[in-house]
Computed example of a mutant assay.
Amino acid sequence: MRIPPLYRRPEWQRLLAGIAVGGCISWVVFLFMFGTMQDRQSKILEDQRDIIKELENEKLIWQEEFAALNKKNQELLTVQGIEIRITNAARYHINSQALNEKTDELREDLRPLLAKDLSSVYKNKELVKKTIENKTVKINEKRYTFTIKEIFFYTTIQITAEIKLAD
């Protein structure tokens, strides 16, 4: 068996050379197209990474602001302080030091209301009122009671009371 002598025929030589050159050209075209597509895909991926990073940072900022607003709203809905004002102390000639001591005592009686939910404190407003009105204090050897004139419930409870002689 012998291999046919095709190398002597120019038609076959041109066919094989054309196949080889065509294969090389198609390989170069394939590599160019594949490289262009991969470059475009890597650019898209990089853009998407940047967008994701930016959105994650924005999300963190929103979460921090949301947490701060929640904390602020929670503080706004709880009792933060108690203010007591006695209006007619001058009528009974009570000095300011004794008056301050007695308002501090009243504030101490109402201290459990601090940091409580505003709605629960408002529901128990009669209890707050009775706590103050049932308190009898002794100033300058005389006994006094309080009557509530106004109560404002907000983050600071403001109580306006009058003092009178106990019976």
Rank of each mutant, 00 (worst) to 15 (best):
R49G: 03
M37G: 09
K53A: 15
I52P: 05
F34P: 00
E58D: 05
G35M: 03
C24L: 15
E46F: 15
M37T: 10
G23K: 02
M37R: 12
N57Q: 10
R40I: 05
Q38K: 10
M33I: 13
I52Q: 05
W27I: 02
N57I: 08
D50W: 09
N57G: 09
S26T: 14
K53G: 11
C24E: 02
Q41M: 13
L31D: 02
M33E: 05
I51D: 01
Q38H: 01
I52V: 13
G35E: 03
C24M: 13
A20N: 04
S42R: 14
I25H: 00
V29Q: 03
Q38C: 02
C24D: 01
K59Q: 06
K43N: 08
T36G: 06
A20I: 04
W27N: 03
G23W: 06
L45R: 15
K59F: 10
I51H: 04
E54H: 08
F30W: 15
V28F: 11
V28C: 05
A20D: 05
L55V: 03
W27R: 04
T36H: 13
F32D: 04
F32R: 05
K53S: 15
K59G: 03
L45D: 12
I25M: 09
L55W: 02
G22R: 04
I61R: 15
L60M: 04
C24I: 14
W27M: 09
L55H: 00
K59T: 04
G22A: 10
M33S: 07
K59C: 04
I61F: 03
E54N: 09
M33C: 02
R40H: 02
M37N: 12
D39Q: 12
K43V: 06
S26L: 15
F34C: 00
E56K: 10
T36V: 08
M33H: 11
G22L: 01
V21K: 11
G22C: 03
M37H: 11
Q48P: 03
I19W: 12
L60V: 07
R40K: 10
K43I: 04
G18D: 06
D39V: 02
Q41E: 06
G22Q: 06
Q38E: 09
M37I: 13
I19H: 02
N57K: 12
D47K: 15
G18R: 06
M37V: 08
M37S: 11
F32I: 11
E58M: 03
S26C: 12
